[in-house]
Amino acid sequence: MEPRQYEAMIAKAQSGSATSATELLQFMRTHKIHQPELVLLHGARLLKGGARALGNEVWTVMEQVFLAAAELGCDQWRDYCLKELTKKFPSSLRVERLKGIEKESLADWKEAEKIYQKILAGKPEDTVTHKRLIAMYKQSGKVPEAIESINTYLETFSTDSEVWHELGELYLECGMLQRAVFCFEELIVHNPRSMYNILTYAELLYSTGDLETSRKYFSLAAYLDGANLRALWGLVACNMALMEKDKTREKSKQLQELQKFTVQRLRTAYKDLGGSGAHGKPALNLLAAVST
């Protein structure tokens, strides 16, 4: 996807031709661009202008418009699209799922849950619906249910790293750090070179008090990317906490050396970034405070 392509398409769709609007909607679908206002604007115009011109695409566009309308609370379009889709595909599971989304947009969580559960009972391998169910629990504030649902999901689809991530975030939200740690370990297994995974894991370990291991993972992150500020600052914080805890001579010396080295690296990193800037100065001041 070229950087300017999307903007150019929007501008073109603005001008009013049906073809360019269709293209824009298609583009948004394939690239998973989330801008419901735009979808509603152009999709509604297309549907109004006559479904015949859209050919077979009309149903996809209708689904897209439905999702956008449900999100924005545009009731008329939502109801219209769902009615048409139900008429066209009376026995489709996909439409059934849309009905659940409709109920969600009305904040009728019970009904939505019932619909999703029904789909899942008939087709337990339907991952999209299961994820929808989890998202619904999360949206309605039922975190324990969401966690439970994720756990049943992961029992079968244990390689879905997205869901592991979601579970980790939810555990974090409830303050169950040990469990979050486990989820992020799983994420590291999935993608051991991801900076995000390593850093978050290290920070989690720091929070749980496992400083030694945390230091190791911060070091790993700093090793992978020597100029990563988050990793270096994490290492500094870790070292400080370790020095605080452990005052014995031998180890302390090594730690101090590591600390000195880290601070030096941070300094060069900030220098490379320009040294000044909004947070460059305070950061350097802080560094001076740390190293004394």
């Binding site: 391998e125 029992e155 079968t156 689809f157 244990s158 390689t159 879905d160 297994v189 999935h190």
Partner: peptide
């Protein structure tokens, strides 16, 4: 699916 993803998880581990 369950066994497959479990084996996949083992492999990744």
């Amino acid at each position: 699916v369950k066994t497959q993803s479990m084996l996949g998880r083992c492999k990744m581990l």
